[in-house]
Amino acid sequence: MNTQYKVMPGPEHFLPPSASSMGIRLPDPGQGHIHGSIVPEEEAMEAAARQILQGKVPTIFPGPLVLWAWNEKAAQKAKAIRELFETIKECAASSQQPMLIPMPDYRPKYPKINPEIEINPNHPNLTIWHNKIDVCMFVGVHCHQANLSLKIIRGGTNCYTIAMCAQAGHEDAMLTFRDATAEKILRLSEWVRKLKGSVEPPSN
């Protein structure tokens, strides 16, 4: 389906429409989407790695599905996420400040949340804005809470959102993967390493 709507960095407006209501569809296995357009997964990998290497504060937001060792798969993903973060730090230019901030649960903790150390789906824009995060990747966040957060971020900030989704992907992210596994997260890590030095880093 051709559509005029693009899922782009905001601020879009206070209540942005859900991307699916604007005709954006989810990718099939082996695919991803960039700004709502379906692309092969490798293309999405490269684009995500470029965004990470271009961002001033590229940040990974791990959610409860990977923060807690529910099973062996979750523990492996947590390991892969740490590996990805270490790779980003290693490949980052001096003008970049990579971060790893958890979303431990979904309780509406406002105003108790400390945006320095955690993110919350009920007001994710606070964390994004406060830390000047301009590129972020959600991983291990339950579908509804991820969609909610991605919409709020798109509505109120100019942050570029990436979803490393274990299910069918997220229309409301600017770039999404689906069927995430530890191997897929490590593949993104390899792409970051591969593109190191070939991407213009952000200016100070």
Binding site: P62, A75, A78, K79, I117
Partner: peptide
């Protein structure tokens, strides 16, 4: 149980 690799970032 918190995943050991991410234990340090948990509040």
């Amino acid at each position: 149980k918190i995943a050991p690799e991410l234990h340090d970032i948990m509040p």
